[in-house]
């Protein structure tokens, strides 16, 4: 059974509920932290740098705004999948107590996917409201960003959890941030179009899921849908299918000690 199937197991929803109950107690600070930093990037680059640049007919801030949705999903899911899940596994005994009940590590992974879907959707939705406030949302299609945010949350949770369950110390999580997520957010088409990048870098960028989800967010927010988006969506689904099971053996191994 894959974690994507386990998503629908009763216990996965209970794992989700656990994370939600814990989060409720510090929801305000969590939201503040997760929104403030990307907002600073958005405003600084969009208005600051954007004042000096235009991209054809579009302004830089118009380009960045939908990209921030992808970045919000990436950050929301990655942060908690890494730090949070590492603590739940190694410090808090959260998973340890779960597996003394009839809960399989597969269902824990499934529950964490659901939880990161929630986080990505919530933080992305707040961003969507903000950019709408700046008049940067041009179509009702933008509402479809919400399910896409959930999908991205699950997708980005997969490698994040795998890393959290794999590493020996918390400091090793920085490898993942420095070598994977930060570079991905630089070349994922969030801040600038990729067509002037060297070809080899474009090829790498094309492989990242962030690039494809940003493509879709941008089309939805601008109301410019085209058939090519189905290809982007297909790639996201392929990456999800490939990574879905990845965290489970690491978690199973750690919990069986």
């Amino acid at each position: 059974m894959s974690p994507l199937v386990a998503l629908f197991h009763r216990n996965s929803w209970n794992v989700f509920r656990r994370d939600f109950m814990a989060w409720q107690k510090y929801a305000f600070s969590s939201v503040a932290i997760n929104i403030f930093e990307p907002m600073a990037w958005f405003l600084a680059i969009g208005f600051g740098l954007g004042a000096y640049l235009t991209l054809g007919k579009s302004s830089l801030i118009q380009f960045i705004a939908p990209g921030m949705l992808g970045l919000a999903a990436l950050n929301a899911a990655t942060f908690d999948a890494c730090w949070g899940a590492y603590e739940r596994l190694n410090f808090n005994g959260v998973y340890e107590s779960m597996v003394t009940a009839p809960v399989d590590p597969l269902e824990i992974a499934g529950g964490e996917y659901l939880w990161q879907a929630f986080r990505a959707t919530l933080y992305g939705a707040i961003f969507l409201v903000v950019i709408a406030g700046f008049g940067l949302v041009h179509s009702w299609w933008a509402l479809l960003s919400l399910p896409l945010l959930a999908l991205c949350g699950i997708l980005f949770a997969m490698p994040g959890l795998a890393v959290a369950f794999m590493v020996k110390t918390q400091e090793h999580l920085f490898y993942y941030f420095s070598f994977v997520t930060t570079p991905m957010s630089m070349i994922g088409g969030v801040f600038f179009p990729l067509d002037k990048l060297p070809h080899w870098l474009q090829a790498i960028a094309w492989c990242t899921p962030l690039y494809h989800c940003v493509n879709i967010f941008r089309a939805l927010v601008n109301g410019q849908l085209h058939p090519g988006l189905l290809g982007d969506l297909a790639w996201l689904v392929v990456v999800m299918a490939l990574l879905a099971y990845l965290p489970v053996p690491f978690l199973r191994n750690k919990l069986a000690r």
Partner: peptide
């Protein structure tokens, strides 16, 4: 279990 494994956030 030895360390109770109670969830400190709940």
């Amino acid at each position: 279990t030895q360390d109770n494994a109670l969830d400190p956030e709940l």
